[in-house]
Amino acid sequence: MKKPVYLDYAATTPVDPAVAEEMMKCLTLDGVFGNPASRSHGYGWQAEAAVENARRQVAELIQADPREIVWTSGATESDNLAIKGVVELHDRPHVVTSIIEHKAVVDTCKWLEDKGVDVTWLRPDADGRLRPEVVEQALRDNTVLVSLMMVNNELGSITDTQAIGAMLRRRGVLFHVDAAQAAGKCLLNVSELNVDLLSLSGHKVYGPKGIGALYVRRAPDVRIAAQIHGGGHERGMRSGTLATHQIVGMGKAFELARAGLESEMERLEQLRSRFLEALEGLEGVHFNGSRDHRVPGLINLSFEGVEAESLMLGLRQVAVSSGSACASATVEPSYVLRGIGVSDELAHRALRFSFGRFTTEDEIVFACSQIRDVVERLRSVR
């Protein structure tokens, strides 16, 4: 049986062959397999050099200092480290976030609420974006952190991080941004974005799963408390033996993303246009998110009269999702779509389509023909 067309790149990306090749060099006796913390022999020195080279590669994509990159197991851990790490250092802290953040932020903030931390939950506009003035109005004298994602993982909408960050910098409030869906999809410059903490993931950028990073701005007022204790690795912020092969893979993936960013954005924009053109004329299709402020490779659509679960079952030759991979086990409609005012009915009828590096125009055309056929067939038997 032919493999289904993969249109779920927002959930995860396949490892680029060039990345896999670099990772293989760090697994066996003939390669760079040593412990980066073993500084008494050449095996450890080689591994440390590989780790630091990858740290530089990741830093270059977001235009940061390599010393500002802290390795983690993924963006979920980075989010936890950033939020809990800031809150732990303050008495009576107040945190601001939004109701459509990734579960890694939502659940972390809910956990903090259960511990007595005051959290303000902002509601975005109908396009999934938060206006800077809404964020500013939520600030208090004891606000220690604002945590907002740059690119929403279900909608693709881009938050005006730069404007919000500039306002928060003036107010002396730390700004954490989950950029897992932004890296490799749009330009990132941590200085211009005015962020203090920024979460990154390897597997969203054609690197391996199980590896991520947290950007921590080098400044006296940016401090986080470690959440994992042990050998004092990563300048005391995240203990644990570094996974050299995964780190090298993430570094190579970010290097490739940086080299091909502009051409990739242009190609994905063309695929997006082709996708929407191929669905023109299909009635009862609703677009969710921002049409203007968004990344090119992610589209969220609701189909009137067709349940998302039924549509996905019918699309046997197309791999898509009904929302975040972290929440797809629930039968409740997407909390993100609810959060931007989409009715429960249309939220139950929404699918997320996401394209990537290996998506072809032929696959787009085939997927759209399948979508049209299945939607029309399901509507005919209501």
Rank of each mutant, 00 (worst) to 15 (best):
M1Y: 07
L7G: 02
A11P: 03
T12L: 15
V15F: 12
M24A: 14
C26V: 01
L27W: 12
T28Y: 15
F33I: 10
P36V: 09
P36A: 04
P36L: 08
A37S: 10
S38T: 11
R39C: 00
H41E: 14
Y43L: 14
Q46L: 13
Q46A: 11
E48Q: 07
A50W: 11
E52S: 00
Q57S: 14
L61I: 15
E68S: 08
V70S: 06
D79K: 03
D79C: 15
N80R: 15
I83D: 13
K84V: 04
G85P: 02
V87F: 05
E88R: 03
E88C: 03
E88F: 05
H90Q: 04
H90L: 01
D91T: 12
D91F: 11
R92K: 15
H94D: 14
H94I: 03
H94E: 14
T97D: 02
E101A: 11
A104C: 05
D107P: 04
D107N: 12
T108R: 09
C109V: 00
W111N: 09
L112P: 00
T120C: 10
T120I: 05
L122C: 07
R123Y: 07
D127A: 08
G128P: 05
R129I: 10
R129M: 13
L130Q: 10
E136A: 02
L139E: 15
V144F: 06
V144C: 07
V144Q: 03
L148G: 06
M150L: 13
M150Y: 03
S157K: 02
T161K: 07
R169M: 09
L174S: 03
F175K: 00
F175V: 03
H176D: 08
D178K: 02
Q181Y: 08
K185T: 03
V190T: 04
E192S: 06
E192V: 04
V195Q: 05
G202C: 05
K204P: 05
G207R: 08
P208G: 03
G210P: 00
A213W: 11
A213Y: 03
P220K: 06
V222A: 06
R223G: 01
R235L: 10
R235D: 10
G236C: 03
T241W: 14
T244R: 05
T244K: 00
H245I: 05
G251Q: 09
L261C: 05
E269Q: 15
Q270D: 13
R272Y: 11
H286N: 11
F287A: 07
N288W: 06
S290M: 02
N300V: 01
F303N: 02
G305W: 12
L311V: 02
G314C: 04
C326T: 13
V331Y: 15
Y335D: 12
V336D: 09
R338K: 08
G341H: 06
A347E: 01
R349E: 09
F353H: 13
F355S: 07
G356N: 06
G356E: 06
T359Y: 11
T359Q: 09
T359H: 05
V365Y: 09
C368E: 02
I371H: 10
R372Q: 12
D373F: 12
V381G: 00
